[in-house]
């Protein structure tokens, strides 16, 4: 069973006046089949955690380990991590002018699966996945994320999740910018993948709204660069009622 283990992870970014530590010792273990919600106020470092796991060059790992089934993830390049089974649905997906969605999807599926998917079944697979996410087939011919609305970008991220079938899915605020209908559609997509039992999910969110659709097994409160409390789904209800104030010194953030 695939397991992602994060141990005492410290991460810095290059700020104007030198390096600034954002993650200050994160410990978290995610197993295939589990769903972990990570909730925290703005600026607490949630995206930093997500990007660091995916290998974004902006973030410097200054301490700790990340392993996937014992393999050192931090040693892998960005593309190696993806091929090893780590997927990041981004909070702000990037526009790639000149590259069509269909070309992009096929290239990435080929890379992740290790061989080019058979054309006939592939076309059908993409078409069905897009239908389930209520995406217009015309999106296949548009350039990656170019001119997509916020909600369309998020659907496109989940489309990739469904096609790439990772072992570990990190969803960074997939709920933000979605109206109620879109939230339901996107959540259903995530749930389809979860129901296979083959993915471990790290669901990063600020609000409890999405947890009505995607039921977490574990909830972790993230504040000031580390996990400050962990519990079951009931912890989310507590956050819903009380907010993050008690986790943030002086109640400054959130």
């Amino acid at each position: 069973m695939a397991t992602l283990e994060i141990h005492d992870l410290h991460v810095s970014v290059e700020a104007e006046n030198g390096p600034r530590e954002i993650l200050k010792g994160v410990d978290l273990t995610i197993k295939q089949g589990e769903t972990h919600a990570v909730m925290g106020p703005n600026g607490s470092g949630k995206s930093t955690l997500a990007y660091s796991l995916a290998g974004h060059p902006k973030y410097t790992i200054t301490g700790g380990t990340v392993t996937l089934d014992g393999e050192d993830v931090l040693e892998m390049s960005v593309d190696e991590r993806a091929r090893a089974g780590v997927f990041l649905a981004m909070q702000y997906p990037v526009e790639v002018p000149g590259v069509s969605v269909s070309n992009f999807l096929r290239t990435s599926a080929t890379a992740v699966r290790g061989e080019a998917p058979k054309l006939r079944t592939w076309v059908k697979e993409v078409k069905e996945a897009m239908e389930k996410l209520h995406m217009d087939p015309a999106f296949a011919e548009r350039n990656v994320n170019e001119g997509f609305s916020g909600g369309e970008k998020k659907r496109h991220e989940i489309l990739q999740l469904e096609l790439l079938k990772p072992k570990i899915a990190i969803l960074d605020e997939t709920d933000s910018g979605l109206d109620v209908d879109a939230l339901r559609i996107v959540s259903e997509g995530v749930n389809r993948v979860r129901e296979t039992g083959e993915v471990g999910t790290l669901l990063i969110t600020h609000y409890t709204r999405i947890l009505r659709y995607i039921k977490p097994d574990f909830v972790h409160v993230f504040a000031n660069g580390r996990i400050v409390e962990s519990g079951g789904a009931e912890l989310a209800d507590q956050l819903e009622n009380e907010g993050y104030d008690k986790y943030v010194k002086g109640g400054a953030s959130a």
Binding site: H56, P57, R83, L88, V94, V96, T107, S108, A111, L164
Partner: peptide, 25 residues
């Protein structure tokens, strides 16, 4: 670099990611 990161985070090796973008351009 953000485009490169995005493509690579989908498993696409760097040289191929560059090729995709330049060909598209």
């Amino acid at each position: 670099d953000e485009q490169l990161f995005y493509l690579m985070s989908r498993g696409i090796p760097e040289i191929e990611a560059r090729r995709l973008v330049v060909r598209g351009f």
